[in-house]
Design a protein around this nucleic acid. Structure first.
Lengths: 365, 365
DNA sequence: GCGAATGGCGAGACCGGGCTCTCGAGCCCG
DNA sequence: CGGGCTCGAGAGCCCGGTCTCGCCATTCGC
């Protein structure tokens, strides 16, 4: 295939071709101002002949609007974030906005760099699932705002940052799941996995403090777990929670440990997909069975969970809706909508659903 | 939070603040040309004070380079494409390029529109997993090329379009999987699922022809299935292949049908994740068991497949590598590398791996 | 000691559009 | 028949950078 590359035609060339002034061609092609039917059709014909396409960059330069949204997530390869991005993408595309997606690999430095890339590229708004932990680590988000770029948080709120945040109630979802486990009769419920903090605090208070200084979702899910324990009057046992680096390997080791305890765990609450698969491997390796020997509930439902043996009871997150809602809120902000009222109204909380299948049963004895 | 929004400072303002000419400030901030240490530090200080950030759009305007890559896939929410995009994103980010991702929902019209968006936004290159079926339906791809924008295909090649394509050998991977099933003793192997063509051709030749006029990956996988049958001297039976709309619901119905045949299917080859879960549901619904009653091999390995009961034998695709490689090839093209030689060298074929686990066993009797 | 080479800096053109403003032509009306 | 309007179209500035070119000052060479 021999392709001929010629410099793309500009509006001046179209004007020359049509024998009209540049402004007239611009008005016709830009769809603004008045142009007589006669000249309009001549311009259109010339543009067609030349294969003219407007340079969106040049247009953005003079209008100051790029019709582009920036999206920052930890990992676009993660099915959860991919779903959220899909939601954002579909909703914004429907409104004529395109999206630039940046992955931060869960690093705050990369997130800051990503924010700068988006600011420099003059995006009209930003949706971010931030790894920021509080006001002190979220200066980059405030910076975007101060430059006039609306920002909406998705999936992860940032405590102390009064920005619109589209999230689920992680704490409540976790509490509901753990409560279901307790309701089935379990008193030794393991938590897999928590915030990536170093060491494992023995005291509950230390744990909560450490969690508060960590990823928002992790902390919330841990608190939901604790809430359920409190509701049922069950004691907190540091041996039943896994914190630290979140890898499937560690999950396997930790769950095997919990399963090997004298007063072993009889139910597991897993906060992420990989925590679920890790737990499953550990359960299998130790010869136990779900749900006869150990019950399990995990976060992030997927079509796989339904075909497992047994089908897994999971917490379903509205991934797409999280994205579309975030995009809608952001687009409204771009349109100049006043920001949500203070006092917690910044939170747009979407419902989760506990999809009950067959991985929960009463403890064996 | 009361944010003060002020117009972002421009290079002229920085120059004024520093008391130097605009060009000097531009040279300093743009990192080109010579500036004396004295003035340089004054400019830097002024920029710092004003919080200056270069407008990437304006820069792209004059340089003609946007440092942005466009990516077009069917569905960014699909874990497979999400993985590919992650690969592209990481590889290009490392080279200073950002990515704009567009989902086409498997529609050629949306793909064409997406291509135009990217052309208009002046991206430096495009990676596309195209739904185009041949030269006639890929004019939009040729158009991008003719405008000087390099395009690299990923995952899906387009027959007759001599562009660099980073793919896996779908036909060979399918042949290998089906051959493994046949080697285990199966003679009635079902194919789930094929190209979304209407009706089910009874004659093998018609099927192949229809497939050739359809999605490249689907056709290749179907041919690999047929190859394996031929290799083993097994007859083709239209009753054992599922074509048409690819939904999990239909897969369930079709597999139940294949399982209900007098001479029923004893092994299943599934070409996608949802085809696997659909097949599994059908198998379970009919009371059969894997692998005792029916063996199964599917495409797209995931961490779930390994924790299934039994663990599933799957074909692993190098999602990330597909993406990184595509980005590398594209970036090389952007750097002005000559295009690959004709005669098939346009194909960059990455290896797949048949991950053998426990879902394949000899037929029951 | 004076012309020339060199070095440092800034004026201004340019990228490709948006948009304002002015100017000219045509029309209506008194 | 001329004044006032309206309507249509094009000249020209702007967006915020890049980059060429030329000016001025210093220094070098003979």
């Amino acid at each position: 295939m021999t392709v001929e590359r010629s410099a793309p035609p500009t509006i001046s060339e179209v004007a020359a071709e049509a024998g009209v002034g540049r402004a007239t061609a611009a008005r016709t092609l830009g769809g603004y101002g008045y142009v007589s039917p006669e000249l309009r059709s001549r311009v259109l014909a010339a543009a067609e002949r030349l294969g003219y396409r407007a340079n969106a960059l040049a247009r953005s330069m003079s209008t100051g609007v790029s019709h582009t949204l920036g999206v920052i997530v930890a990992d676009i390869g993660n099915p959860f974030f991919a779903g959220v991005v899909r939601g954002i993408s579909d909703a914004s595309r429907a409104r004529g906005f395109d999206t630039i997606v940046l992955s931060t690999h869960e690093s705050l430095d990369e997130e800051i760099a990503a924010m700068h890339v988006l600011i420099d590229k003059q995006v009209d708004g930003i949706v971010v699932a931030s790894a920021a932990l509080g006001p002190k680590t979220s200066a980059h988000i405030a910076e975007a705002w101060s430059r006039g770029i609306p920002v909406v948080l998705v999936d992860r709120a940032v405590p102390g940052l009064e920005l619109d945040a589209v999230v689920i109630d992680n704490r409540e979802a976790a509490r509901e799941a753990v409560t279901a486990l307790i309701a089935a009769g379990h008193r030794r419920v393991g938590f897999v996995w928590g915030p990536p903090i170093a060491g494992r605090p023995d005291r509950r208070r230390d744990l909560v403090d450490a969690a508060a200084r960590n990823l928002w979702t992790d902390g919330e899910r841990l608190r939901g777990y604790l809430d359920a324990l409190d509701d049922a009057g069950l004691p907190f046992d540091a041996d039943l929670v896994m914190v630290g680096e979140k890898t499937e390997e560690r999950a396997i080791a930790e769950v095997e440990r919990m399963l090997g305890l004298d007063d072993r765990v009889t139910a597991l609450f897993c906060t992420e997909t990989d925590a679920v698969t890790g737990a499953l491997r550990a359960i299998r390796a130790t010869g136990f069975r779900v749900p006869a020997d150990v019950s399990l509930i995990g976060f992030d439902d997927s079509s796989w969970a339904a075909v497992m043996e047994p089908p897994l009871t999971m917490i379903e997150q509205p991934m797409l809706a999280l994205g579309t809602r975030a995009a809608e809120v952001l687009l409204a902000l771009i349109d100049g909508a006043p920001r949500s009222q203070p006092d917690g109204a910044f939170r747009h909380t979407l419902d989760t659903r506990l999809v009950e299948r067959s991985s929960v049963a009463p403890p064996s004895a």
